[in-house]
């Protein structure tokens, strides 16, 4: 499949679109919605736990309270989709643990990347 469902983000909200992967406009970040799912946690935590972690992360890091801000952080050096995106995020998570870039939220010891994914997930749900 050469086209995927993407999310166009803006300061006012998110709209689900079906567009190519390459585009990226000023002030908005388009990303594969697969990014909303913290793959490293979905088999260990319930959706409610993921949501709760996401909310707590946003409280703890108020600078990252918008989808745009979080998505930018997650995708800072990644331009991939689908499995490649998952692999790139996995790599980022591993690097987080390697460098101590971790978040301690509701008792869970998480990589900051996966905590951001939880936060993104809650915002995407809110905005859906």
């Amino acid at each position: 499949m050469d086209r995927r469902s993407f999310v166009l983000l803006s300061a006012t909200g998110a709209v689900a679109l079906t567009i190519p992967v390459a585009c990226s406009g000023f002030g908005t970040v388009r990303y594969d919605p697969i990014l909303n799912q913290p793959q490293s946690l979905t088999s260990l935590l319930t959706p409610d736990q993921i949501s709760s972690i996401g909310k707590k992360y946003r409280e703890k890091v108020p600078k990252e309270k918008t989808v745009n801000a979080i998505a930018r952080k997650l995708l800072d050096d990644i331009s991939a989709e689908g499995d490649a995106l998952i692999a790139a995020i996995d790599k980022k998570i591993k690097k987080d643990f390697e460098t101590g870039n971790t978040a301690f939220i509701e008792g869970w010891v998480l990589s900051v990347t996966e905590a951001r994914q939880c936060a993104l997930s809650t915002l995407a749900t809110q905005n859906a």
Binding site: F97, E98, T102, G107, S111
Partner: peptide, 13 residues
Amino acid sequence: EQMGLAGLGRVCL
């Protein structure tokens, strides 16, 4: 952190 780094799982305090 080490469980995460090793890709084995996660720890909750």
